[in-house]
Write a protein that binds this DNA or RNA. Structure first.
Length: 651
RNA sequence: GGCCCCGUAGCUCAGCGGAUAGAGCAGCUGCCUUCUAAGCAGCUGGCCGCAGGUUCGAGUCCUGCCGGGGUCACCA
């Protein structure tokens, strides 16, 4: 029995003995005592008023008297209104600390024999990784680590979208304009190199489109559309958009920014050509035709095309791996869409045979999910080719065959919530054995202080740039402080990396995944306050004390009486760690771990400031505080590692 | 319009149905001859979007409304 269960048991006995009623542990409201009151745990006595027919404070008083008499682990109690604050005995805390301070695994659960797969990152291969991917990667990695700590055997995978029209655009642009240039010949990081050709394609295409807009064909189409009733609707929409833009403008102007409305954005012509872009690409564009031809050749297995595809994708992978290395993440297995996109058809056939799915007259296959409050979902095109969900069904099944996992977690942005609901529902209806263990770890988009990231407007924050920036900031700070003197350049660089990445990672992970977040680059490189480096600093302070203290015989701690309130506070926080890890795993929520680490670091910084460890009044106090510091450092290291953040020994 | 998510201090975010709603940043003020000041302490700052309801007790649960976002493809 842990202490919480012991107290609950005591309360149950108290209620029985004092009021003659039987209650269960679930009837007891208990939390850790707020900092401003004395005590470790608090029992709320309001709920017992009906049973006891007494006032809450009387109940608390009677219960407190009972517990301090009957339960040896209770040292003192006090009553404030209906709250019974219990202080555990010094002996209890001493033994708890002696138990854990050497245990670097404290907080982790032993293996539970269950397997879980986590999919994250899963980028397209036409562009380098950006800030949105970083949130995805950090959440996925952290969720994986947390599940491991909760006892699961975890498999980390990604699905790489290596096929389709996007990569063909890069390929085509490279073929047409690169003149044989390579990442090696240009010295450009290889994924950026490929991304540059994607951007180049878009530029050339846009120029082509713009020129075409003046053609007779285009003018005729525009005239025709202007006469349609769609244009009437569009007119209203554009007017609304203009109004909204004007309002935002007003706000900016009040801030002293000088901005003007671009009237051309709100004309019907602009609207038409914007909405016509895809049609133009597919029906009129020369470049579009060439890109689609390339896609067709790829699908037919044309050797030269496949070779180019292979070559460019490899460049991208090489670049991605560099970024993953910098972020300190890795995967157990990669799935490539080019190899999985045909999977799933058999499952759909089976579903069709079993009457779970149905086929429309036009030959397309559908799932009717309306009774699950979802819609009808298309599973196969009328020509029998597969869709995104077709592949997802197949990939899920394949992964089950590969790893035999009972659970699968998909770390994917929340814009795909509906897709995953439909996918999970379809898998459930197919009676897949893992169907009840599916979870979509959905996260909100990352905005900038200036608004949404838009690739068209060049406001996308590049992952590599961002990492370099936070590390550089850490380097400048460290240089100013001059605390790393005596270390080699490599050692210093390693520490500066750890600090910069801690700032970035902590800044992103501390926000609850579900929430859309604003990423302020300026704040993300902050090294003070509620940040990763703040937590690291608490750990480093402990290491410094331990170094100065040398080898200590810590048995004297058993003679330490009268723990200080701040020591109890730290112990109480340490006590909460194992359950916190399990909750974080059950809820797939790394942000709680980040907040815990911050709270613990904060409490330690205060303790460190207010009390001397090495110069404590007695040998017992010194030994006890060394144990306590060690335990705090272990907990911080474990917690931060669950977030994918490394701890330096000095900083 | 239907469904889903969000709304807490000037800004970014915490907050298990329980006590006087908390941090950080920003602003102002103190503390380094003492274990690393990437630290500590103090001040300033709140109709927890609004309105009802459930409850001994609601920022937290329920309903409605308002505001923001997402999504409603034989795209991914």
């Amino acid at each position: 029995m842990n202490i919480i269960e012991l107290i609950q048991d005591g309360v149950i006995r108290a209620v029985k003995s004092l009021y003659g009623a039987d209650i269960g542990a679930g009837d007891i409201t208990m939390n850790s005592t707020r900092k401003e009151f004395e005590g470790d745990f608090t029992v709320v006595t309001f709920p017992f008023t009906r049973i006891a027919r007494k006032k809450p404070d009387e109940i608390a008083e009677e219960m407190g008297r009972f517990l301090s008499r009957e339960a040896s682990y209770i040292q003192r109690y006090n009553v404030i209104k209906g709250f019974l604050n219990l202080s555990l005995s010094d002996a209890f805390w001493r033994e708890f600390l002696a138990d854990i301070y050497r245990n670097e695994k404290y907080g982790q659960q032993p293996p539970n024999g269950h397997k879980v797969l986590v999919e994250f990152s899963s980028p397209n291969t036409n562009k380098p990784l950006h800030l949105g991917h970083i949130r995805n990667i950090l959440l996925g990695w952290s969720a994986s680590r947390i599940l491991e700590a909760a006892g699961y055997e975890v498999y980390k995978v990604q699905v790489i979208n290596d096929r389709g029209i996007a990569i063909c655009k890069s390929m085509l642009a490279w073929e047409k304009y690169a003149d044989g240039a390579t990442p090696a010949s240009t010295g450009i990081k290889s994924d950026h190199f490929v991304g540059d050709y994607y951007v180049l394609f878009e530029q050339k295409f846009r120029a082509e489109y713009k020129a075409w807009q003046q053609s007779d064909d285009a003018r005729a189409l525009l005239r025709e559309w202007l006469a349609s009733k769609e244009a009437v609707k569009a007119e209203k929409e554009q007017a609304q958009k203009r109004e909204k833009a004007q309002k935002e403008l007003g706000a900016k102007a009040a801030n002293g920014e000088v901005v003007t409305l671009n009237e051309a954005d709100f004309t019907l012509e602009t609207y038409f050509f914007k909405s016509f872009k895809d049609t133009y690409f597919n029906k009129y564009s020369t470049l579009g035709a060439e890109a689609r031809a390339m896609l067709r050749r790829w699908e037919e297995g044309d050797a030269a095309t496949v070779a180019l595809w292979q070559r460019m994708n490899n460049w991208v992978y090489e670049g991605f791996n560099e970024t993953y290395d910098k972020l300190g993440v890795s995967f157990d297995k990669l799935y490539y869409e080019s190899q999985t996109y045909l999977l799933g058809k058999d499952m759909i056939e089976r579903g069709l045979a079993e009457g779970i799915f149905y086929r429309k007259d036009d030959g397309s296959t559908w799932a009717d999910l309306t009774d699950a409050k979802l819609d009808h979902k298309a599973l196969l095109r009328s020509d029998g080719t597969s869709l995104y969900i077709t592949q997802d069904l197949g990939t899920a099944h394949l992964r089950y065959q590969d790893f035999g996992v009972e659970k699968m977690v998909y770390v994917v942005a929340d814009e795909q919530n509906y897709h995953f609901q439909a996918l999970f529902e379809a898998l459930k209806r197919l009676k897949e054995p893992y169907a009840d263990g599916l979870y979509h770890l959905a996260y909100g988009m990352v905005d900038l202080p200036t608004g949404k990231m838009k690739s068209r407007e060049g406001t996308v924050v590049d992952a590599d740039d961002l990492i370099a920036e936070v590390v550089e900031e850490a380097r400048l700070n460290s240089y100013e402080r001059d605390t790393l003197a005596g270390l080699t350049t490599e050692e210093q660089q390693a520490i500066v990396n750890q600090i910069g990445l801690a700032a970035l990672k902590f800044f992103i992970i501390k926000v609850h995944p579900r929430k859309r977040m604003t990423f302020d680059p300026k704040e993300s490189v902050d090294l003070q306050g509620q940040t990763g480096p703040y937590v690291q600093n608490a750990y480093v302070r402990v290491q410094s004390v331990l170094r100065k203290g040398g080898e200590q015989a810590l048995e004297a701690a058993s003679a330490y009486e009268q723990l200080e309130a701040q020591e109890r506070e730290l112990l109480s926080q340490l006590y909460a760690l194992p359950e916190l890890v399990q909750t974080a795993a059950a809820e797939y929520d790394p942000s709680t771990i980040a907040n815990y680490c911050y709270d613990l670091a904060k409490a330690f910084h205060r303790f460190y400031h207010d009390y001397s460890i090495l110069n404590a009044d007695t040998e017992a106090a010194k030994a006890f505080r060394l144990q306590l510091s060690q335990a705090v450092a272990n907990a911080l290291k474990l917690g931060m590692n669950l977030l994918g953040i490394e701890m330096p020994e000095r900083m």
